[in-house]
């Protein structure tokens, strides 16, 4: 579903990501962990076409992102680490904007908006301007907008930040459902317990380089993910 081959990205003289390769198959929930500034957001942004790689190639559903970005973007949804949405729109207007872009038929979009808005308990707030939303409400709206076209691949940067426990629980369930129905998820997180419980596979990135990648069992062995992560990061456990 997502093939990252030798992706490299630099900002000026600093190499943010250095020649990483990750392969995510259908049905896989893939966690991406690392320190702040390790290169997680850069990688995720490159996978959704916001950043152009300096070297390497990214394929989504077998389609090269560099040569057919539009077709790739139709298959994915991206959730950034900070939900900077259009504050001048109301929640429903924003969702309809995204639905228009994905050409979702009117009745289908209405059913999906109602379903997810009720699930995340923001239905009554949809007519309000986004500028009046709390961080958590914006995050919920961003999640709904990411789910509205039923993407095959969901790219999420710290998706649980700002969510209340109930919404976090719901999101975890939705993520698992997407993977069970043949989709794939690539998400970054700092919460190792979440990654440990949720992910099928995990990759650890440090200083732009991939230092460990594989199934959860392969990566952690008999230890906890936290101790493996801290050991790999060179911290005292």
């Amino acid at each position: 579903m997502l093939n990252i081959n030798g992706f490299t990205k630099s900002y000026g003289s600093k190499k943010a990501v250095d020649d990483i390769s990750i392969h995510i198959h259908r049905g896989e929930l893939f966690g991406f962990i690392g320190h702040n500034g390790a290169g997680k957001t850069t990688t995720l942004k490159a996978c959704c076409g916001i950043l152009k790689p300096d070297a390497g190639e990214i394929f989504i559903d077998g389609i090269p992102l560099s040569s057919d970005p539009l077709e790739c973007k139709r298959r994915i949804a991206y959730l950034p680490d900070n939900p900077d949405l259009y504050e001048f729109m109301s929640g429903i207007r924003y969702l309809n904007f995204v639905a228009d872009v994905f050409a979702i038929p009117s009745s289908v979009r209405l059913e999906r908006i109602n379903r997810y808005a009720e699930l995340f308990e923001i239905k009554k707030d949809l007519a309000q301007p986004i500028s009046s939303y709390s961080h958590g409400m914006k995050q919920k709206l961003a999640i709904i907008s990411a789910l509205i076209h039923e993407p095959k691949l969901l790219l999420m940067d710290e998706p649980f930040v700002g969510l209340d426990p109930k919404a976090s629980h719901l999101l975890k369930g939705i993520m698992r459902d997407i993977c069970n129905s043949g989709g794939a998820i690539f998400f970054s997180t700092h919460v190792l317990e979440v990654a440990e419980k949720l992910c099928d596979k995990v990759a650890i990135i440090k200083g732009g380089k991939l230092i460990k990648c594989g199934t959860m069992e392969d990566v952690r062995g008999d230890a906890s993910l936290e101790s493996v992560f801290l050991e790999l990061e060179g911290e005292n456990v």
């Binding site: 429903i92 309809n96 007519a127 009046s132």
Partner: peptide, 14 residues
């Protein structure tokens, strides 16, 4: 500021 607008789940034109 919150407005007095209320969400109505009527289908919108694509």
């Amino acid at each position: 500021t919150r407005s007095s607008a209320v969400y109505s789940d009527k289908p919108v034109r694509e």
